[in-house]
Design a protein around this nucleic acid. Structure first.
Length: 671
DNA sequence: CCTGAATTAAACACTT
DNA sequence: GAAGTGTTTAATTCAG
């Protein structure tokens, strides 16, 4: 299986280069090939290029390999995610009859999405002493077990890693083996992450995974639960549209006798202490419910989270076991601590991680919504923040973390604020809506600087905006072509390869856009940016569709969550929505740079722009600017590029810009 | 469906 | 002549 998928991915990889855009890339290749039939040269070129791509893949570099493996791991994770999501509806399905094993606690608790319960509610449900005792008991128990296992695992993993790394040094012959090893390493990383996550969650008390799943990632889950549905979940009505009645009923009967939030949450008290037969192979009990058979709670109720409905719930296993004893035996033999198991664990970890991230997002969104509506959230971010942080910081071992960027461990392949754009959006850099309306390249870049620097992910900006950024970042706002190249390679890992392509694109953009002005300098030709031109070329879209502007503004101001907004969020996870700043309604500062860049405030917050005044942009100004910004630009277009950059923000950049231009290009251009 | 923007590829001219 | 730089054209894709 490994082999097949590997080769397949390799095959498809060439065109995409970054794997992401393989589809469009291929289409491109063939398209231009056939289309270029008319133009003989072009066709030949395309063909040759494709061949070259294949070549380069034949001898995949280690980096490529790793990248490809990352993609694959993610793929697998996504699949699992889907599975888990569909199996979600039957949360506590597993037996509760049996004296609950330690793991069971979180199971039942999990269903109730505790993070949504206020302390008050909890107190209503349980008497304080009860609650206290319960919590302590469970937490201690879980913690102990998890830590124990985690420790063991660590040692094992370490050893494995060492051996793997050694083995991985062998060259071509064992390419395949190496791939597997590397893949497993990836998976190991994931697993560790997951373990840690679980620990953290447990520490935070009563936090479990089920709710996350219930609110699954909008991007991936087919039956994603929209935020408005969540309350229903809290009420114990089961996942909407899912045949979860059985499990719910079961849970209710066994534990509490009712299915309401309150009572079902009270279930845990029954949970009896340790008694688990052996150390649990993985600390996350709830997730491994089968999607389909979850409703049929036939045979043996078991105390093991990995055992249910007479079969092993280990991912991809489904081995039938007569009873618990047999299952335990099976578990110990088939799912011992080996490479495969750890790999699978790792995948599962990724699943959980994704879900947690999603939950965090939703929580934050809720916060923002409530803030907007002047409601006071009863519980300010139970663990939405920790989710992100915990993965990164609470890693005692430091064993196999991606040495890349800080962002990498949490969201391996995508920049924190960037969402899935680079992950599974169509082409690499094509169609970057973020570039148009949402993402301020400067702030986005500042935030994810490390990420782009290290991750081989194509930045979601247009060449033009990147070039501009490069130029504007310099003190004198001018760069030679070569310096621009260097900036690209310095700032983005992605541009460290494929040089011919993007360099050509850079040159092309420099020539194509009027906003880039070539200036003969003492030391040769340098390129500068004509901000006015740059701004001019963007507005049209905004002016063209007032509704769009409106939507955007409302989004920015946390207005109604209209459908398009949701869709956009789900689909592409706009940076603007995900960026930390945006999640905090109060922080106008984060909001400002955002628009001020792409709205085109000429005065970019540059390190050293002596002339234009960077620190202006007060909120009111900003919003005003958004709405009006077109006018000046267009008027300016018709008229001459005079001092009229419009009322909103005239004096700042306009004149300054002018001065710059006049200085650098003696009047000639600006036609 | 049309249009504009962006990307990619390629040819060509010019300079070093 | 090769390499780098700059300009231009064309094809394609995508979003509005």
């Amino acid at each position: 299986m490994m082999v097949e998928s590997a080769s397949e991915t390799i095959r498809s990889a060439p065109s995409g280069q970054n794997g992401v855009g393989s589809l469009s890339g291929q289409a491109d290749g063939s398209g231009s090939g056939s289309g270029a039939g008319a133009a003989g040269t072009a066709g030949g070129g395309a063909g040759r290029d494709a061949a070259a791509g294949a070549d380069s893949n034949g001898e995949m570099s280690p980096a490529d390999l790793l990248h490809f493996q990352q993609q694959q791991a993610l793929q697998v994770a996504r699949q699992f995610l889907l599975q888990q999501a569909s199996g979600l509806s039957s949360p506590g399905n597993n037996d509760s009859k049996q004296a609950a094993s330690a793991v069971q606690v979180p199971v039942s608790v999990a269903m109730m999405s505790p993070q949504m319960l206020t302390p008050q509610q909890m107190q209503q449900i349980l008497s304080p002493p009860q609650l206290q005792a319960l919590l302590q008991q469970q937490q201690a128990l879980m913690l102990q077990q998890l830590q124990e296992y985690y420790k063991k695992q660590q040692e094992q993993l370490h050893l494995q890693l060492l051996t793997q790394q050694q083995a991985g040094k062998q060259p071509p012959k064992e390419a395949l083996g190496n791939k597997q090893l590397a893949f497993q390493q990836q998976l190991l990383q994931m697993q560790q992450l997951q373990q840690q996550h679980l620990l953290n969650l447990q520490r935070q008390g009563l936090v479990s995974l089920q709710p996350n799943q219930a609110s699954g990632p909008l991007q991936t889950l087919p039956q994603a639960v929209c935020p408005t549905d969540l309350p229903q979940l809290w009420k114990g009505e089961g996942a909407p549209g899912q045949p979860a009645e059985d499990s719910v009923k079961q849970e209710g009967l066994d534990l509490t006798g009712t299915a309401t939030t309150a009572t079902s949450f009270a279930a845990p008290p029954k949970v009896s202490p340790p008694l688990s037969h052996h150390t649990l192979p993985n600390g996350q009990p709830t997730v491994l419910t089968p999607r389909r058979d979850s409703s049929s709670h036939e045979e043996t109720p078991s105390s093991h989270p990995l055992y249910g409905h007479g079969e092993c719930k280990w991912p991809g296993c489904e081995t039938l076991c007569e009873d618990l004893g047999q299952f335990i035996k099976h578990l110990n033999t088939e799912h011992a601590l080996d490479d495969r198991s750890t790999a699978q664990c790792r995948v599962q970890m990724q699943v959980v991680q994704q879900l947690e991230i999603q939950l965090a997002k939703e929580s934050e969104r809720l916060q923002a919504m409530m803030a907007h509506l002047h409601m006071r959230p009863s519980e300010p971010k139970p663990f939405s923040q920790p989710v992100t942080v915990s993965a990164a910081d609470s890693f005692p071992d430091g064993l196999v973390h991606p040495p890349t960027s800080a962002a990498a461990p949490v969201t391996p392949l995508r920049p924190p604020g960037l969402g899935s754009a680079s992950l599974h959006s169509g082409g690499p850099a094509r169609r970057r809506s973020s570039d148009k309306f949402c993402s301020p390249i400067s702030s986005e870049l500042a935030q994810n600087h490390e990420f782009y620097k290290n991750a081989d992910v194509r930045p979601p900006f247009t060449y033009a905006s990147l070039i501009r950024q490069a130029i504007l970042e310099t003190p004198d706002r001018q760069l030679t072509l070569n310096e621009i190249y260097n900036w690209f390679t310095r700032m983005f890992a992605y541009f460290r390869r494929n040089t011919a392509t993007w360099k050509n694109a850079v040159r092309h953009n420099l020539s194509l856009h009027k906003c880039f002005v070539r200036v003969e300098n003492v030391k040769g030709a340098v390129w500068t940016v004509d901000e006015r031109e740059y701004q001019k070329r963007r507005p049209p879209k905004m002016t063209g569709s007032p509704t769009l502007v409106k939507n955007m503004i409302s989004s920015l101001s946390y207005g109604a969550l209209n459908a398009s907004y949701q869709a956009a969020l789900a689909e592409s996870s706009f940076p603007i929505l995900n960026s930390p700043g945006m999640l905090n309604p109060g922080s106008t500062s984060s909001l400002l740079p955002l628009s001020h860049d792409d709205v085109g405030a000429p005065g970019e917050p540059l390190p050293s722009n002596g002339s234009s005044s960077p620190p202006r942009l007060s909120p009111p100004q900003y919003s005003h600017q958004v709405q009006v910004k077109e006018e000046p630009a267009e008027a300016e277009e018709d008229r001459r590029p005079g001092p009229a950059l419009g009322p909103p923000n005239p004096s700042t950049a306009g004149p300054a810009e002018d001065r710059d231009l006049e200085e650098e290009l003696p009047g000639e251009e600006l036609s």
